[in-house]
Computed example of a mutant assay.
Amino acid sequence: MAEFILVAGAWLGSWAWEDVARDLRAAGHGAHPLTLSGLADKQDAPAGQRTHVRDIVDEVERLDLRDVVLVGHSYAGIPVGQAAERIGDRLARVVFVDAVVPVDGESFASLWWQGQQAFEDILDDGDGAWLLNAAEFDGQGLDSEQVARIASGATPHPGATLTEPAVLERPLGELPTTYVKCLLDGEEPSDDAADLLKSERWRLVEMDTGHWPMFSQPRELARILHASVTGRP
Rank of each mutant, 00 (worst) to 15 (best):
A2I: 10
A2E: 02
E3N: 15
E3K: 03
E3I: 05
V7N: 00
A8E: 03
G9E: 00
G9M: 02
W11N: 04
L24D: 00
R25D: 01
G28W: 01
P33D: 01
P33A: 02
A40C: 09
K42V: 05
Q43A: 13
A45N: 13
Q49K: 10
Q49F: 12
R54T: 15
V57F: 03
D58W: 04
E61L: 12
R62F: 07
V68H: 01
V69H: 02
V69Q: 04
L70K: 02
G72C: 05
Y75M: 01
V80T: 13
Q82P: 07
A83T: 10
A109C: 07
A109E: 04
Q114R: 14
Q117E: 15
Q117A: 14
E120P: 00
D124L: 12
G126D: 07
E136W: 14
Q140V: 10
G141Y: 00
L142S: 04
D143I: 06
E145D: 14
V147M: 10
A148N: 10
A151L: 12
P158R: 12
T161K: 11
E164C: 06
V167Q: 13
L168T: 12
R170P: 06
L175R: 09
K181V: 08
L184Y: 12
D185T: 08
G186L: 11
S190D: 13
D192T: 13
E206H: 07
D208A: 14
M214W: 11
R219S: 15
L221R: 03
A222F: 01
H226Y: 00
S228M: 03
S228L: 06
S228W: 00
